[in-house]
């Protein structure tokens, strides 16, 4: 759990461009001290009296003890909210709520971990890598994106990981292709015991398939459109199979964003599977026992 989330007015300490992304470091003591790898924060965008009533979810890239605690996140401009965030400057204030969601579970034993990141999804993997290495786990990275300027954290991955494999769809950096193309080779080479992944849903689906092929667990941090980030609006749901074998529409924000990959019914995201609990026509039987 990691303690209950806080709402804080944070002050932007620094902003910088990192390739296609904007990195913001914000003084947010209550959040930094409760943070665990995999947590995210939600940000109000547009300032006081904003016409944008929903919050934006952002993964926490880094926390540092400076100024009582800072959090850093990495923003890709998508629409008006992220564009507003990209315009923030030092000393601006931000309304943050966090840490939110369920963090990555950590292995008890020193095992071999492959960390897979797509686009800005890799932002969430570095704090995880630190935590894994403190437990004497081996960490290898596979990072990918559409193009070189969208691969986030390649330098840091090279510094931190035993090996780092990069892929781009246009071939502008590393191997041409997708992370799932190279992942089987990496898993074999490093004798991986577990895969951690964060990135677009299509990537998570492919990474999970690799994990299933090798019969090793995959922990995925999913991304679903969110309005509240705290579990009250029920807009961020996806079909996930529970311990009892029953598929439920669960909240990515409060029940996730981290799930066991093989429990997420990726093929059925965006639908209500007929056998989900409460599906029209009376679903809910344990058809998908794993």
């Amino acid at each position: 759990m990691g303690g209950s989330p806080q709402q804080v007015t944070g002050t932007v300490l620094t902003t910088r461009r990192v390739d296609a992304y904007h990195a913001l470091t914000v003084v947010a003591p209550g959040i930094a001290e409760r943070f665990r790898p995999g947590h995210f924060v939600s940000v109000s965008v547009g300032g006081p009296g904003t016409s944008m009533v929903t919050r934006r979810a952002l993964a926490v890239h880094d926390v540092k003890p400076d100024y009582g605690g800072t959090v850093e996140f990495v923003v890709a401009v998508r629409g008006p909210g992220t564009a507003w965030l990209a315009d923030r400057r030092a000393r601006d204030t931000l309304d943050l709520v966090g840490p939110l969601g369920r963090p990555f579970p950590l292995p008890r034993d020193p095992v071999n971990c492959v960390l897979v990141g797509g686009e800005y999804g890799s932002a969430t993997l570095f704090a995880l890598a630190d935590a894994l290495q403190r437990r004497h786990c081996r960490v290898d990275f596979v990072l990918g994106a559409a193009a070189a300027d969208r691969v986030f954290g390649a330098l840091r991955a090279r510094r931190v990981g035993e090996t780092t494999t990069l892929t781009t769809e246009d071939g502008s950096l590393g191997l041409r292709g997708r992370v799932a193309d190279v992942l089987p080779g990496v898993v074999t080479d490093v004798h991986a015991d577990v895969i951690y992944a964060c990135g677009p849903m299509a990537m998570l689906r492919e990474v999970t398939a690799v994990g299933i092929d090798f019969d090793i667990p995959v922990q995925v941090a999913v991304e679903e459109a969110m309005a509240c980030g705290i579990g009250v609006c029920m807009t961020c749901v996806l079909p996930v199979i529970g311990d009892d074998g029953v598929t439920r529409m669960v909240r990515a924000c409060a029940d996730g964003p981290v799930f066991r990959g093989e429990r997420v019914r990726f093929e059925d995201v965006g639908t209500i599977p007929f056998d989900a609990l409460g599906a029209p026509g009376g679903g809910g039987s344990a058809r998908h026992v794993t």
Binding site: V53, A225, M234, V237, G270, G278
Partner: peptide, 24 residues
């Protein structure tokens, strides 16, 4: 129990949002 509507269930609109949660 109700599973509600498929996603996307929400979109932001000027000073508001449109939702179709479907009583999950």
């Amino acid at each position: 129990p109700r599973a509600g509507r498929p996603t996307p269930r929400m979109t932001e609109t000027p000073s508001g949002l449109l939702n179709a949660v479907g009583l999950q």
